[in-house]
Amino acid sequence: MKTWTLLFLRVSLGWLLVIWGADKVFNVEHGMAVANKFYFGFLAAENALRVAGALQILVGLAVVVGFARRWTYPVQVLLNGASLLAVMQSVIDPWSWVFQGSNALFYPSLIIFAGSLLLIAYRDEDRLVLDRA
């Protein structure tokens, strides 16, 4: 059961990176709006956003298939950690009782980050991967 659960977690988290990366590549306007609203304009240039999106897709695909996990899992944690920090107000106060403009739909960012850490913690027990020795 653990083998299949780790596979499911890895595929779902990796595919999330692919989806977010593809959004940056193919829906640049949305990517720019997200960068400006949540990331202080970081990468809010079309070419930079497309390159970042393509790299994010590659990392996501590597996570999905379990390739270069010693490198891709920490990158995944950094990317998901940045997303968590960007919406932390909504994690702390999902119903806007304290912070204006919070959104309960961003709470899963905490769960995504926890799952990313879990993949690192159980990396040696994940069997259905490409880079297994």
Rank of each mutant, 00 (worst) to 15 (best):
K2M: 12
T3W: 00
W4N: 09
L6R: 02
L9M: 12
L9C: 10
R10H: 04
S12V: 14
L13F: 12
G14W: 00
W15K: 04
L16C: 13
V18W: 07
W20I: 05
A22K: 07
D23R: 12
D23A: 14
V25N: 00
V25I: 06
V25G: 01
N27V: 11
V28T: 05
E29S: 15
A33P: 01
A33I: 11
A33Q: 13
A33G: 07
N36A: 10
Y39K: 04
F40D: 15
G41R: 04
G41W: 04
G41D: 07
G41T: 02
A45W: 03
N47D: 07
N47H: 05
N47S: 08
A48H: 05
L49Y: 00
R50F: 02
R50V: 07
R50C: 00
A52L: 02
G53P: 01
G60Y: 01
A62P: 05
V63A: 03
V63M: 04
F67N: 03
R69D: 09
W71P: 14
T72N: 12
T72V: 14
Y73E: 08
Y73A: 06
V77C: 10
L78P: 06
L79P: 00
L79V: 11
N80R: 09
G81V: 12
A82P: 01
A82T: 09
S83T: 15
L84A: 07
L84I: 06
A86P: 12
V87W: 00
M88K: 10
Q89V: 08
S90N: 08
V91Q: 05
V91E: 01
I92Y: 13
I92E: 13
D93P: 06
P94N: 14
W95K: 12
S96C: 08
F99P: 11
G101H: 08
S102M: 01
S102D: 02
S102F: 01
S102Q: 01
N103T: 10
A104P: 14
Y107D: 04
Y107M: 13
I111Q: 10
I111M: 13
F113P: 00
G115V: 05
L118E: 07
I120P: 13
R123L: 15
D124S: 09
E125C: 14
E125L: 14
D126K: 05
R127W: 05
L128G: 10
L128Y: 14
V129A: 11
L130D: 10
A133E: 13
